[in-house]
Amino acid sequence: MTRIPLNKAQLSREKESLAAGRRFLPALDLKRQQLMAERNRARRAAGEARAAAERAVIEAGAAVPMLADRRIDLKGLVKVESVRIGERNIAGVRLPVVEDVRIALRPYGRFARPHWVDEVVRRLALAARLRIEAEVAERGVALLERAVTRTAQRVNLFDKVLIPQAERNIRRILVAIGDSDRAAVVGAKIAKRKRVAHESGEADA
């Protein structure tokens, strides 16, 4: 245990530390709860985004069964050209948000490929956009997970370590000050009795 000065100045510092910890802990715990709630929402949103992306690919295959025709070259028809990511602040955590996705469609000869290629291109572009949104949502979940962990650690630090430590220090200092005060009183009484006795002896002489 760290040795601390057992005096009134240290007592004042420990009381201030305890008061600050008790003020700060409820706000910190509220932040932890907010982050946990947002993390849970983000998990659901990321799961829904990932499922939507996978569903778009499956639906593309179901709606356009001709995709199985290997003789038709579909490579490079759809390409993600650029993605603009913004931010939103949730309880002090900056989360990425998809603001814009630009998808380039490679020109293709309509006479060189069957008419259903148009539908394939549309569905592949949608799937690409949804996949990006899912990946960004999952990044947000990871950021929130880390923020929840850090905030929970700080809550535990205040609740389990700093506040109890300040309370113990205050008790130790109060006991030490009480012992010192009693010793001073006893010493003063002894000194007074000696002085009275000495004065009485002088008077008898």
Rank of each mutant, 00 (worst) to 15 (best):
D204E: 13
E167T: 07
R88Q: 09
V155I: 07
V93L: 00
R123M: 06
I90W: 03
R129G: 06
G92P: 03
E81L: 15
E145R: 08
P107T: 05
R195W: 09
E135H: 13
V186Q: 05
K160N: 11
V121I: 13
A142F: 06
L77R: 00
N156P: 02
I90M: 02
G109C: 01
A147E: 06
K79Y: 09
G109A: 04
I72C: 02
Q165N: 06
R193N: 08
A128Y: 09
V155P: 04
E81T: 11
K160D: 13
E87K: 15
V155C: 11
E135W: 10
V148D: 03
L74K: 14
E167V: 09
V97N: 05
A205Q: 10
S180D: 14
K160G: 05
D159I: 03
R122F: 10
A188E: 08
L105W: 06
R113C: 01
R106H: 07
R193C: 07
P96H: 07
A176Q: 11
V117D: 01
T149C: 02
A188Q: 07
L157C: 08
G187C: 10
A188Y: 03
G109H: 00
E202N: 15
A191H: 12
K192E: 15
V101W: 10
V136F: 00
E81P: 11
A137W: 05
A183W: 02
V148M: 02
D73I: 03
R71N: 05
V155H: 02
L157W: 14
R146S: 12
L95F: 04
R113Y: 01
W116T: 08
A91F: 07
N156I: 01
L143G: 07
H198C: 08
S200A: 13
H115T: 10
R182N: 12
R94F: 10
V161L: 15
R182V: 13
R139T: 13
R131N: 04
V196M: 12
A134Y: 03
G92V: 02
E119L: 14
A191C: 08
L105H: 10
V155W: 04
R182P: 09
K194G: 03
K79D: 15
E99L: 11
V97I: 15
A166N: 05
A188N: 01
A205F: 12
A91C: 04
N169M: 01
K194W: 12
V97M: 12
L143Y: 02
L95S: 00
I90D: 04
E145N: 06
I72L: 02
K160C: 08
T149F: 09
V93R: 01
R102D: 05
G178Y: 09
V101D: 15
K189S: 12
R129P: 00
